[in-house]
Structure formats: C-alpha cells, structure tokens
Nucleic acid binder design. Sequence first.
DNA 1: GTATGGAGTGAGTGGTCAATCACTCTTTCT
DNA 2: AGAAAGAGTGATTGACCACTCACTCCATAC
Lengths: 196, 196
Amino acid sequence: MCEWFITHMATTQARRLSTADARRGEVLATAARVFAARGYYGTSTTEVAKGAGISQSYLYRLFPDKETLFVAVVEDCSRLIREHLAEAAVGVGSAEPEAVLDAMALAYAHLIADRDDLLRVLMHANCAASEPAIGEAVQTLYARLVEYVRSASGAPDGPVQEFFARGFLCNVAVSIGATEVDAPWTRTLLAGIRHF
Amino acid sequence: MCEWFITHMATTQARRLSTADARRGEVLATAARVFAARGYYGTSTTEVAKGAGISQSYLYRLFPDKETLFVAVVEDCSRLIREHLAEAAVGVGSAEPEAVLDAMALAYAHLIADRDDLLRVLMHANCAASEPAIGEAVQTLYARLVEYVRSASGAPDGPVQEFFARGFLCNVAVSIGATEVDAPWTRTLLAGIRHF
DNA sequence: GTATGGAGTGAGTGGTCAATCACTCTTTCT
DNA sequence: AGAAAGAGTGATTGACCACTCACTCCATAC
C-alpha cells in the first residue's frame, strides 16, 4: 500500500534530510500530541495539519493517507520509548536482570511523566488495531519491544511479563487521569509507582 | 445532561420492564459488540442501530445522544464483569486473599475468552476518556472495580495492584490479537495466562 | 533569463455523520 | 367508538471529513 513511504524512510535513513523530510519529522512530532487526545478515528487530518502549522493539502503531500500518517506516528513513538529504555539499560551499573528491568521501569515512568502523549498514542493504536495496517504495526511494535527488553535485561519470561504488566497498568492509569485523583482506588493502583 | 436517563434507570430497576426498557437492554447488549470493533469515535450510530435491528431514529428515541448511549454500554459491560468476578468469589472454597484473587483472575480469563467485546469496549472507553462524560464514567467504573476486588478478596494493595496489572496485560494482548499469534514475544507476554 | 522541480496553498468534491422532525401504526384506556 | 399514549420509521439537514486538483511561489541549473 504505502511501500513508497516505507522504502523512502529506509533509504533516506542515512543521508542528509531534505527539507520535505525535515517537515515530515516535525509533523510526526506534533501529530503525536494531536492524535494523543482522540486517537485515529477521533482526530481529523485538518486538526493534525493545524497542529503542525501546515495546510491540510500539504499534509497529504507528505503522507499518502491518514492511515499511513498514523502508523508513522505510532512507529515514531515506539522508537522514542525504545531509545529511552536503551539509555537506561546502558546506564545501570549492575548486569543483574532484575536491576536492568528496574532501571528501565524507572526510565519509563519518568518518560511518560512529561510525555504522556506517547503512551496515549500507543493505547489509541491498540484500539485501532482492527484497521489492518495499524494492527500489523502494533504487533511488530510489541514484538520488537518485548524482544528488546528480554535481550537488554537477560531476564526470563516471568519478570519480563511483569515488566509489561506494570507498564500497561501505568498506561491505563495515566490515560484515564487516575494520576490526577487522590483516592483509595488510585493509591492502590499506583502504590510504589508514583514518579509523576 | 442525561439525568432523565440515569434516574429513569434507577427508578425502573425494581419494577417490571416496559417494552421500551426491554428494547434498551437489547440495544445495550448488541451495541457492546458493535462498539467493540472501532470504539466511540469510529462507530456510527447507524451501525449500532443496524446491529440492534432498529432504525437510527429510534435509537435516538431510546438514548438522548451518542455519548449517553456509549456510557450506558460501558456501564453495562463493567456490571457484567463485576458479576462474573462476584460469582467466582463466592464459589471459591478458601477465604485466603490470594486464593480469592486467583479465582477471580481465572474467572476473568474465562469470561474474556468468549466475550472479548467486553474488554474491547473498556479499552475504547479508556481511549475516549477525554470526552467528559465518558472520562467520568470510566473513573467511577475503575473505582468501583478496585474497591470491589479489594473487599471481596481482603487482600492488601500489592496483590490487588498485581491483579489489575495482569488484567490490563490480558486486555492489551487480546485487543491487539496477540492471542492469535504464536511467537516468542506472545509466549512471553501470555506465559501462564493462556485460558483462551 | 528562463526552464525545471519542489515547497506549499485555496478551493473544492462526494460522502458520511449526529441529530431532528413529521409521520404511521398499534395498543390501551374510557 | 374514539381519544391518548407509546412504538417505530423515512426523509432530511447542516456540519464535517478524507482526499484531490489546479494553482502560486521560490530556489537552483543552464
């Protein structure tokens, strides 16, 4: 469907960014914030264009259609998250699997503290997974993320699974605004995780 | 906004269901399945009406607007889930907190095995929480659910938190179709949880 | 200096959506 | 029999949406 775009991204990875490619990058960054609010279905391309400060028609020159744009945003967000986890993994002194996992969990908590749009986009992507291209992107996203966490930590299935379970708990808590509410149920859900 | 509807539901809880109320119940049951696919923003009222076998205009006689309809669907789904957890809680022999929690987790896994629309609606509700009425409904939903699980099991914060973390992990796994894929990453994410 | 190509836009187009309204048919009450 | 109330529908409306196209402006290349 959007092979021109994929190959384009792949081949231009190394060489200098042209002006249009730079624009694409800027659009991806601002589009994440726009899509974070109401997701793939609830966000119009006009809103995304307005958020990026370009016309809607030019948005359609940068991306072939809305689905491709959204998938690119999702991949950009997941790349950002992976980079932050990687940074934490190399920064930890110990090589103990549990220590690496804890460092990555802490890094994630800090990351989403001031970039909650990242996890919101990911949650919206989960919910739009019935759209074929988005569903495929989401599956490969999680596949890469799980394999990365496994290899970076060297931990077995159990702790890796718990790492993701707690991550999803954070995601839900942030996305429903539970972090802004102080009540017994939010204290239970967020006990020992509050880094925001 | 929709007080007439809330009070209506409250007052008619006890007495016999009129035909219109019966229709409302049927619509809620089928609407959950329709909303499960593409959520609040991605599902049209015409699709919901078609799924329920009524005209779109009559759907608007049964519910004042789309948002109220969706909130009613969400509350219906959460009620169903709570009922299944309650059933499991009374059925367990032991009164040990961990045993009750395990029984409820098993019941949840079995429930979503043949009613994945329930968790899909809940996830879509999370993502539509920026809509004021939906956000409020979702927060009270989770508040009730957490308090219910806490009181039914008698467990402290830690195990209750883990119960929900694993639940959200299941939700994400099902919603992205990870349960249909056999790969290292899905085996890690679903190790020891496969009841579907 | 003028041609070529890329950045960027305004003005649409056909279609869909939430919501409304006037209307019919059926049941029930008197 | 006839009024009143409720179940249910078809047609419509104005707003919005994804997507297109003809167009302008501005570099650089010759």
